[in-house]
């Protein structure tokens, strides 16, 4: 019995560590929320223990004949008044704590770095807004943010309701079609924080992950500068042949690769797909092999997704995978 409960506790608690846990916070909003969670659980635990002890005492003592009715009446009244007062104070305290937490995880100032995240079945489209001198760019399933800085996320949806949830950095916020929600995202230390769609959105809801890469401001600037650039012509002959095949096949009708004629908008922007950690919204690491497997048969790896199986010869498949991998 003891072994079983220890196993159960460790199994449940193992879900609370690692890079996707609200109890392992690395961003200001998540830290505020962890404090709130721990505070409420601690207070409620104390109250529960007190109530259980009093109940136990009452059961053990059993009923007694009242010696002095007037005295016990006064004692009873005092106890009830004290219990009601304690309840009011505790509930008001928890409400106020919750209010302050909500205020602290609210929307950042308007001059913060703004990233638009658009949920789609079943991937995340990410837009970095440009300024006068610097053009904006688009990526997918991966957000890079500088550490120690408030980031303003604008959350939108192209089809159904999704929910953005990176437990280590912030709370949940829905992406609702036809409106734009706001959210504060902030990381205190560098790392890769995994997030997950938290609102059931269809067949592949479970394969709709997003990676938040928090890095030092200098690293972030370097990354953003490289993402702003167009795709370069690959030097490798296989990859160059793959570029030609990509543009000749239906791939280019749905995907954009800036710097080429491919300008489709219904699929993820592939301009720098080789630089991303994962493909197909966290389905697999980005390697030439996983890219080839995905392109060869997307409906087996992620049934129901909107990428069709495009008939390719094995040479074309190899070349296109090499090209994808070269798009750093």
């Amino acid at each position: 019995m003891r072994v079983a409960s220890a196993l159960l506790i460790s199994a449940v608690a193992s879900g609370c560590s690692g890079n996707q846990s609200a109890l392992d916070p690395h961003g200001a909003p998540a830290i505020h929320m962890e404090h709130l969670i721990i505070g409420i659980v601690a207070i409620c635990t104390v109250i529960w223990v007190v109530v259980m002890v009093m109940l136990g005492v009452a059961l053990l003592r059993g009923p007694r004949a009242a010696a002095d009715t007037a005295k016990s009446e006064a004692w009873l009244a005092m106890t009830v008044v004290a219990a009601v007062a304690a309840t009011v104070i505790i509930i008001a305290g928890l409400t106020i704590a919750s209010f302050y937490t909500t205020r602290d995880i609210g929307v950042p100032k308007s001059d913060a770095l703004t990233i638009t995240v658009r949920g789609q079945q079943w991937w995340w489209q990410v837009f970095y807004a440009g300024a006068d001198a610097t053009p904006g760019f688009q990526t997918a399933n991966e957000i890079h943010i500088p550490i120690g800085t408030d980031v303003h996320l604008r959350l939108e949806s192209a089809d159904v309701i999704h929910s953005f949830w990176v437990p280590s950095l912030a709370g949940k916020q829905d992406l609702v079609p036809g409106r734009s929600n706001s959210m504060l995202l902030r990381a205190e230390k560098p790392g890769v924080y995994r997030g997950q769609c938290a609102e059931f959105c269809g067949l592949q809801h479970s394969h709709m992950a997003i990676m938040v890469v928090a890095e030092a401001p200098a690293d972030y600037d370097r990354w953003a500068a490289s993402q702003r650039g167009d795709a370069t012509m690959p030097a490798d002959p296989d990859a160059a042949a793959g570029r030609g095949a990509f543009l000749a096949k239906p791939c280019a009708a749905c995907h954009t690769i800036r710097g080429t004629a491919a300008n489709g908008t219904t699929g993820p922007d592939l301009t720098h797909i080789g630089s991303r950690l994962t493909i197909a919204a966290g389905l697999a690491e980005t390697t030439r092999g996983s890219l080839a497997a995905w392109i060869a048969d997307p409906q087996t790896l992620k049934p129901g997704n909107n990428m069709p199986m495009v008939p390719l010869t094995s040479a074309e498949l190899q070349n296109i995978s090499a090209y994808m991998e070269s798009l750093k």
Binding site: A248, P250, A253, P308, M309, V310, P311
Partner: peptide, 8 residues
């Protein structure tokens, strides 16, 4: 022809 698969 060159923009969609035959199944689409």
């Amino acid at each position: 022809r060159s923009r969609m698969t035959i199944e689409q």
